[in-house]
Nucleic acid binder design. Structure first.
Lengths: 204, 204
DNA sequence: GTCTATACGCAGATAGAC
DNA sequence: GTCTATCTGCGTATAGAC
């Protein structure tokens, strides 16, 4: 936020446009107008529209990965603290990066990307890590048995959808889904719901 | 499927294009080429591209609503049969209408639609009905306590994401996420996961 | 009902002045 | 580093022949 170089302003404005209108729905004019410069000036910083988009996507995944990797409690705390930590970091990242959420979701939807880039391949290491964690804990009897891969996908969908489908939720609910009260209720629900499903029925 | 009038062919092809490439990413040429006619011939059946899109959206929601309303076991069966029925109808509708899933999801993502149409408003009656059902059952002690609105949203996200983000899942998993084995596992997981979270800890 | 021809605007990208 | 001017192609939509 501190650095307000033109290039950064372009990236920030483009991120908003791509999130709101998608790649095809965004014109270089839209971005330039938001920054306050003319269209050809954009291409002084990036060789093409594709390049802007790719850059934003790479920044986004880099940031996402960093937040996950730098997760505080990745030590050997108890398994529930781990789950809460995973949920909290993801929730917090989605909340503070709503544009990235929508861009990633659009990318997941599009049958064939404009680039060589593949979202599934990029996220696979994180997915597999989460799957292995749940399998280990379920094997040890600390979590109730579920299909680990589907469990992670369910969590992903439950978290991401709340932020990506914001516009629809606004029509569905009486309250702004991004109000602090609604967000707290959402996080509490997801945490408790997951806990309800994973908690063993008999505690040793 | 039986009626193969040109208009139906247009609708079917447009649905595929809009799902794969979005509204802005789809040109009338794309649709016309898929049907096997020229671009101006499309506009003999629809006054504009917007009209085609709006028509598809209306068809989709009409169909979705009908499938939900015609749900077989909406009688007074036990509450678990009700939950299974809701999940099964939704799952089956998403599975057999993958294009609609992606079109609806794109609509939910887009900050402002091209039309006066609002997805949240359209789905709100169904949402409220589901919320009231869960609240009633939780009040009666047949389900464990959860935030009913968030519960429905979680189910929605868990079901829809699996079908909308198919491309990403293909890169994430080793298996085709739409193979019959994977689909069965997915449905079983969602059903069991929801049941685990809702089942009261002490059975009267 | 489908076509060719065309109008018209906006897209992305480049050249070159300042 | 930003601009004006321009090139080129594709977009939606319309007019009118067959």
């Amino acid at each position: 936020m501190a650095d307000s170089s033109t290039k950064d302003l372009i990236v920030r404005e483009a991120r908003i446009c791509f999130a709101n209108q998608g790649f095809d729905g965004t014109s270089l004019n839209d971005i330039a107008a938001g920054v306050g410069i003319r269209r050809p000036s954009l291409l002084h910083y990036f060789p093409s529209k594709d390049a802007i988009y790719q850059h934003i996507l790479e920044l986004a995944l880099e940031e996402w990965g960093r937040q996950i990797d730098e997760r505080p409690t990745s030590g050997d705390g108890d398994c529930w603290a781990q789950v809460d930590s995973i949920l909290e970091v993801s929730f917090e990242f989605f909340r503070t990066n709503p544009e990235i959420v929508r861009i990633v979701r659009r990318e997941a939807l599009t049958e064939k990307g404009h680039l060589d880039f593949d979202l599934g391949t990029a996220l696979r290491p994180y997915f597999l890590r989460a799957v292995r964690f749940f399998e280990r804990e379920m094997e040890a009897g600390r979590f109730r048995r579920h299909d680990a891969e589907n469990l992670v996908l369910t969590g992903y969908g439950a978290l991401l959808t709340y932020f990506s489908d914001h516009r629809m939720l606004t029509g569905l609910l009486d309250e702004d889904p991004f109000s602090s009260r609604a967000l707290e209720a959402r996080f509490a629900h997801v945490r408790d719901f997951v806990r309800s499903a994973l908690e063993p029925l008999v505690t040793e």
